[in-house]
Design a binder for these strands. Structure first.
Lengths: 189, 189, 189, 189
DNA sequence: AATGAATGAGACTTCATTCAT
DNA sequence: TATGAATGAAGTCTCATTCAT
């Protein structure tokens, strides 16, 4: 709608594509504004620096994913199944969106990624974490520090997505299911 | 004696420390040769470029780790235990060497990391992979593409190591054991 | 007005002066942008590399000279005189503009100077060459490969200009006339 | 014979070949000692610097050529023919030895080439110049400053040699003869 | 809001030269 | 004589960022 967010979004899209492929170091502001079809000045109109741009992109992607996870609130469905369904969504999303996944993996392993940023992002995962907390109480899943669930879901998915991207594994529907199940075995009680 | 490898090793050590802390982008050649106590020219005597230095460091670290895993060849010990012991060693090594782990994680999620490099490194993990193959045959562990074991060991360990480093989890001996066990549940039959 | 070409031209002027005096090797980009009064980045805004800058300067100078040669199109003037007049202009120009001449000589004897560049530049000498071709047909001048006329005009002039510049000959009006006449004897029938 | 001069000569040969092809700037000491099959230190044993090496090579080549010109001292042969024969030898040598010619041309148009160097080299051309002086007195050739004969012989030859090398003229025996004759017309009375 | 020419610090890298062996 | 690892000044070039328009 508004023209403003069009440009901002174009810059985001360009950054996502380019960083996935060339990394942070290999992606210059010039590459970004050329790919986005805007001017150098425009990038600095929307973001105060390259670092801010990258950090904002990370935050928005993570928040978007959090919002996309549908938590089943049907009272008749057992907790175990609700958790499983959320788990399945998170992992599949990352596995199946390898550009985003590559960006997120790169960011989260880089010095860009501070505790402060992770804390901020974690807020949007509140509902999911509440589900997990109930899961712990009701002995459906193991009692682990919250961030460890993150490791078994997001980080495992990132790893699988990248291996698939560089051609080291063939990511069939069967394998996807096996990955989700295996990670589930890791956290379930 | 062995003065040559002294300089090369000093450059490696400096690179490892600095890249772990500041990332590839944040680590300049100048920082490296100052930290290593050598001249600019010396870096280029041993490595043809910054990229080559980083890639070589990755390869050597990975190979070193492969060599350090002791595989139990006692015929009386059951296969399941042998695999478990190897598994335990790999994960613990990464968790407990957070500087190396941070570097390796960063590298493996970056565009530096090509299939070619991974293939070359994988060769040194031959013995470990043979163990896993026997594990598959004897139905001790799940039949997974080899690189997926990598995800559940190395990549999970990298993730845990980094979360511990930035203070998002407290890595107690108990938690280490839980991590090893959980990953084991993911791959065991 | 035309501020863009001002900077480009300033870079050209500085390069011409400096390379004439210190040679390609002896002229750094830093010397050029300081002499031109622009920033390092500006040099790379107008030229993609030092080599490109030097090659472009060569091409532009050669083309400028080609344009400055006035060909007499008065039908009453005999062909012989027309050719002589063009010849005289070319040689005098080079002899009397020793900075340009030194640059051009240096370039044309260096590995910068490829057949491709020479071919491109030669296009602007079309009209002059047509005159020479008529001269050959009408037996006013010898039948020589086109580039050989180049040798007897431009290259001889470069040589004379440089010898004058380093003080090995005194370039009087008399000597200039003698040079033009002598080269004419070389090519005339 | 002596091993010393073998190495010195190997360095000379390598420099000649490499500079002809890549220019002064494009030829590093490393390239030279690799091509010559000696160590870095050896280059500095025989020459105090890169510049000295290049200058020495120029001097030696020029002196060698001077020595190779056979001056006919048969009293029955007319002066005109003696001069012609010397002229022919000089021009042909340069035309037919394009590697040396390229090096010499490049050097003589570069800031390496000072009046001092040219003066020193000129000494070896004493006998040839005496012949020319007699030619002037006996009105066989034009009265020109000595260095101008240089232009019409050496520099013209360099130019032709290079044009042939980069493929802009085809240097047949016929053309060679024409070049020698044309230059002779330029200087003869 | 948008542009893109201009900036200049700083990155990577080269290379002539030295010197301990 | 000969070696070649080591040096470090200096080179080319990039790129995040600014600002006049």
């Amino acid at each position: 709608m508004a023209k403003i967010s069009d440009k901002r979004q174009a810059i985001f899209n360009a950054t996502l594509r380019l960083v996935s492929e060339h990394g942070f170091h290999g992606t210059s502001i010039a590459m970004i504004y050329k790919e986005a079809g805007v001017s150098a000045g425009s990038v600095y109109h929307y973001f105060s620096s390259k670092d801010e741009l990258v950090v904002e992109l990370y935050k928005e992607l993570k928040k978007k994913i959090a919002k996309e996870v549908r938590i089943n609130d049907d009272d008749d469905v057992p907790l175990r199944q609700k958790i499983w369904e959320a788990w399945d969504q998170i992992i599949r999303y990352e596995i199946e969106n390898s550009i985003e996944s590559t960006f997120l993996a790169q960011f989260s392993k880089s010095p860009y990624c501070t505790m402060e940023i992770e804390r901020e992002v974690f807020i949007d995962y509140r509902k999911i974490m509440e589900l997990f907390e109930r899961g712990i109480k009701e002995m459906v899943i193991k009692r682990l520090p919250p961030m460890v669930y993150n490791t078994f879901s997001i980080d495992v998915a990132h790893s699988i997505a990248q291996k698939s991207k560089i051609g080291m594994i063939e990511l069939t529907e069967d394998l996807k299911r096996t990955i989700v199940e295996s990670t589930w075995e890791a956290i379930k009680m």
